[in-house]
Design a protein around this nucleic acid. Structure first.
Length: 506
RNA sequence: GCUCGUAUAGUGUAGUGGCCCAUCAUAAAGGACUCUCAUUCCUUUGACCCGGGUUCAAAUCCCGGUACGAGCACCA
């Protein structure tokens, strides 16, 4: 029709028949922030973040806190911080983490988690559900060895314990509890089906025995009190139900956990929470690390502590001057995709710069100082702004009456330079002759520190697993420890004591 | 081996059949501003894994391939 009667005729028809087809659709807005939470009702959302307290939080944990916490806040819901401390030998908990983790979570979020649950306080609860599982015959006590059962799992073969009478199971359960069975002798399994096509789901273990005489739980109130301990999939499933968790957001390595737990929920007649998954995140500069490994390295003295600036822990990042805001924005920007990604630190630094630049006082730090003798008729006292864009931060006064200053050795060599905020000088050896106080040409501008207002100081760069200390002279100041500064022409740093600055980033 | 998942510029990310010769950020390059190699601003470069299919129309749906990752622990 367009060819025979012309496009105008078509438009006329459309205008009469279906005007909406002609409307130019609005360009869709780009989604910002976190994706929609399925089935989330304001005020009725309960999320949780469940670390193993085998060390303080690291960079990756921040994702769990930020994402879950942000949703909780967005929906006027609750965030549960849960310590999944049910292993006493392979990943034993670290006592100090029980105190540090809530503090770090609060620092990151700006609010305290609404509930704190410690799994090791809840063992009796888990026992009662384990018993119920046996009584209702959807669980059994299995005393096959782990090796034997592996073969059964591969071969889709029911093990000899599977068909036991439930009364026998309950007797065996008592033997687990009273110590007749030792670690490795028996486990409680969930009857999910050995014929399931996903081998990970076949009659998975729910509780096992640990030798807590040999490896007591580090919390003294728990110690060797229990020998039967729930495994993660069981403990987490029961606790999520007990706490009324509505949404679980976690790593995709736990996808099969969801499936295992869903089968358990079906047995109990519970409804499984909505789940979302994220992929693995690697930081280009850090590569792989694990809490257990860091713990070993710290204990071996390779690092100064959990907040050693070379470590990817929350405390180290905080110490280095990375703000909670930056960390939060960083994780929210990455979102919740299931892709395994590798991100450069530059992305985090860029978020951090946005947060600190307006508040970071400018200050001069001269690395490898070269002493210079000033000559000529120049002002003996000068004043430069603390921040070039923020007048209210005032000025810093610098006394140069004794005519001795320092510049960086690497800046020494140009015949003509301008001392920033001061004056133009021409060099004659280490003597600098005053040329003009106003800028007289396009000569390079360098920062400097005067002899009268210098502090001997040290700048620490965390670099490639090493801490590089660079000695130099710092402009004298009254900033408090913990102040984030911008070292002119170097980058941001944080004052960790009056004569030491820890480099944050460029 | 079995099971599950993911694939958009260098790096991240938006996009749920026509608004897409694809968004935004970051990185890189160039420029403006600036008495910092900072901040701010502007410009440029740059991507839908491959092959089929469905459809008038596919980044988007389906099938196959490839690549990468995860689970199959009496760890979390």
């Amino acid at each position: 029709m367009a060819q025979s009667e012309g496009i105008e005729r078509l438009i006329t028809i459309l205008e009469e028949e279906a005007p909406h087809l002609l409307e130019k659709r609005e360009k869709k807005e780009r989604r910002v922030g976190l994706p929609e939470l399925k089935n989330a009702k304001k005020g009725k959302v309960v999320l949780r973040f469940a670390p193993n307290p085998n060390g303080p939080l690291s960079f990756g944990h921040a994702r769990g806190i930020v994402i879950n916490g942000t949703y909780a806040k967005e929906f006027d819901g609750e965030l549960i911080l849960r310590f999944d401390d049910t292993d006493t030998s392979i990943k034993p908990p670290l006592l100090s983490a029980y105190e540090e983790i809530p503090n770090e979570a609060e620092w990151l979020l700006g609010f305290k988690p609404h509930r704190i649950i410690i799994a090791s306080d809840r063992i009796d609860q888990y026992y009662s559900y384990a018993r119920q599982m046996l009584e209702q015959d959807f669980g059994y006590v299995c005393n096959c060895s782990a090796d034997e059962f592996r073969q059964f799992r591969i071969g889709k073969i029911n093990c000899r314990c599977r068909g036991q009478d439930k009364n026998l199971n309950l007797q065996m359960w008592e033997k687990m509890l009273d110590g007749t069975y030792k670690a490795g002798d028996a486990v409680v399994r969930v009857k999910t089906g050995m014929e399931l096509k996903n081998p990970a789901l076949r009659d998975w273990p729910a509780l096992r025995i640990q030798d807590t005489e040999k490896n007591p739980h580090p919390r003294k109130e728990i110690g060797s009190k229990y020998r039967v301990w729930p495994l993660l999939d069981f403990q987490s499933a029961v606790e999520d139900h007990l706490q009324g968790v509505t949404h679980i957001i976690r790593g995709k390595d736990l996808m099969d956990s969801t499936r295992k737990q869903t089968l358990l929920y079906q047995h109990f007649g519970w409804k499984y929470p909505e789940t979302m998954y994220w992929g693995r995140v690697k930081v280009h500069e850090w590569g792989g690390f694990s809490t257990s490994q860091m713990r070993k390295d710290i204990e071996a003295g390779k690092f100064e502590g959990w907040d050693d600036p070379r470590l990817p822990t929350i405390s180290a990042l905080k110490k280095r001057g990375i703000t909670a805001d930056a960390l939060r924005n960083f994780w929210i920007e990455l979102g919740i995709t299931q892709k395994d990604i590798s991100v450069p630190l530059a992305t985090l630094y860029s978020h951090n710069t946005k947060k600190i630049d307006d508040f970071a006082p400018r200050i001069s730090f001269v690395r490898n100082p070269k002493e210079i003798q000033l000559e000529g008729d120049y002002p003996k006292s000068i004043s430069v702004p603390v921040h070039p864009n923020v007048e209210s931060m005032g000025d810093r006064e610098i006394d140069v009456s004794n005519s001795k200053i320092y510049i960086e050795s690497s800046d020494f060599g140009d015949a003509k330079i301008r001392l920033k905020g001061f004056a133009d000088f021409d060099f004659d050896g280490i003597k600098a002759n005053h040329v003009s106080t106003e800028r007289s040409d396009k000569r390079p501008i360098v920062h400097w520190v005067s002899e009268d207002s210098k502090i001997e100081a040290c700048l620490i760069f965390p670099d490639d697993g090493k801490l590089t200390r660079i000695h130099g002279v710092l402009e004298k100041n009254n900033y408090d420890i913990g102040t984030t500064l911008q070292l002119e022409r170097i980058g941001y740093g944080i004052m960790i004591d009056k004569s030491t600055i820890l480099f944050t980033h460029e």
